[in-house]
Every structure is written in structure tokens, then in C-alpha cells.
Design a protein around this nucleic acid. Sequence first.
DNA 1: CGCTATTTGCAACCTTGTTGCAAATAGCGG
DNA 2: CCGCTATTTGCAACAAGGTTGCAAATAGCG
Lengths: 147, 147
Amino acid sequence: MPEHIPPSSSAANLAERIRAVGARATPARIRVLELLSAAPLPLSHHDVESALGAGSLDRVTLYRVLDWLVASGLAVKGADERRVWRFSLAGGGTHGSHAHFHCEGCGRVFCLDMPAPSPPPLPGGFTLLRAALDLSGRCAQCNGVPA
Amino acid sequence: MPEHIPPSSSAANLAERIRAVGARATPARIRVLELLSAAPLPLSHHDVESALGAGSLDRVTLYRVLDWLVASGLAVKGADERRVWRFSLAGGGTHGSHAHFHCEGCGRVFCLDMPAPSPPPLPGGFTLLRAALDLSGRCAQCNGVPA
DNA sequence: CGCTATTTGCAACCTTGTTGCAAATAGCGG
DNA sequence: CCGCTATTTGCAACAAGGTTGCAAATAGCG
């Protein structure tokens, strides 16, 4: 979720944003939010832990802070290709409509820019939150085509 | 992977297919293959374990059988939205064109009949094997709509 | 400054997945 | 049909990632 221009990443402003969702602006939350604001890519729990300096924040507290960020809508959580949870600031990119190509050879995922698929009809009672076109096959490299 | 007409799912034929890749046709492998053949959707390790009856097959053996199936090309492995590994028979279903709906509430997956999205342009050297439209949101039950 | 609900840290625990090794066995040749 | 050996299985132990309960610390109110 590359969103390189967060609204404001000063500690004071972050504290403000935290209080805005009705919670206490604690050092732990501010520091984690600062990190996420500065990160060009989604961070894993481990990334955050080591960026803060191991032991500087309890492992469990970090899990709770990250989950709280997601629950309060300040961050979003998604699994990467290696099934590691990664967190990034919310709001940034609704991510528009785009497709993923998954290579069955090397397992890498490529993002393709392409028009959104037309929203399909759903059974009654179902609500749609997200739609993704997932393609799979073999990438150029796995097909032996040089980059 | 709803492919309801697997090449052949009789135990004898599955044993044949296992020997064809140069390995021993053991009960564990045959039973797991049978399950995957019959499954309309990719199964998790846990799904298989409980379908076989807990304890009927050692936990570790099942991990090994599943990984062996993937290594030998009989099955494919992929992570679902909840980061759970799911296994399905390889090759079997070109799967036609249809979409999956993933409920973010209960985690269930529903198959929707719908026309295939038009095949998008791929970068040079890439080959397309499969295309799936993956929708997510909340199912009727999780929305409180009675069946 | 004092109070209380919210957060934190800790210790223990669960789940998922892996490793090493001894016992069982598929499938070969006789 | 029988024995043999490489392959599989089951077990026990371990490791990473994640969760829970509870007592101690503290943000932010008046």
C-alpha cells in the first residue's frame, strides 16, 4: 500500500489522531504509528519489533497495539506471500481496482494495472466489500524469458 | 477447486497414480488423495485431519503426505485469506470460469456461477493458466439474514 | 493532585509447522 | 508365499507465531 504522503506524522499530530478515535495516546501507540507512517511498505510484527529495538516494547503489547490500530481503522492488515501479517496505515490507497498475478513457478506475486471487473450479482443477503481478479500461471523468469 | 469429475477417484486408480510418480501407495496417501478428489474446494490440513477422523492419521504424517503431494505435482498448495494453507488436486480442474465469494465473517467460501472476466493483457513472457474472480464481504448468515 | 478506566508487562498457554529417530510396511526378488 | 530393504509412519520434542488472564502502571479526567 504505497502511500507516501501521510496527513501528518509528527508525534503530536499522531497523538491527536489517536484521541480522535476515542483512545489514549500512549507512547507505544504513538511510536508504532510513527513507524507505520514512515514506512514505504507494510511492516510485519517482526519488522516493527526490531525497528523499535527488541524488548523496548513487550511482544504482546505490540500485538495488541497492531490489532487495535486495525480495529480502530487507523491501519489495515494483510497477509503477504509468505503468509506473514503486514500492517500499513489505512486510508492511503483504496488500492483501486487491480489484479494480482501469482506465479506457480516461483510463488511471486505481481500487481497488474487493469480496469475493474464489473461488480457481479450476489445472492440475497450478501454484501460485497472487495473484489480482486487473481490470475495465475508462470512469470517471464520461470518461463525462461530473460528480464 | 470445484471439479466434480476427477479423472478417476477409485482407490485403485489413485494408487496407480501414486505409483506413477514413483512412490509407494500407502493408505495414508490414498485416503488423502481420495478426499482431495472429492472436495469441491481446497482443503486445509485441519479439514483433512477431521474428515479422516482425528487421530486416525498422525498429525505429522499428514503434513508430510500433503507436502509430498505438492512436491510430486499431484496437488497444489495455496494460502487463503486467513493465512491457512489449502490443498487441492493439481491439474484436475481447469475450473472453468467462476468466482469465489469469501466471507470475512465466518471464513466460508461460496462458489458463484458467473461469466468469466475477459482475459487481461499480461506482461511479455507471462503465461496464464487460471483466472479467478475473488470477491469478499459478508455472507447472508453473517449479515443476520435467515436462510 | 487524586481517581478510575485503560494499557502495559508478564507468564502461561495454544496452534501450526518442523526435526530426529525408532518401529512398521510396501513392494521388490526369490 | 517369504524375507529384505528402502520408504513411510508414529512419537516425542522443539520452535515460531499468536492469544489469554491478571496484576501493576498510567493517561487523562475532574
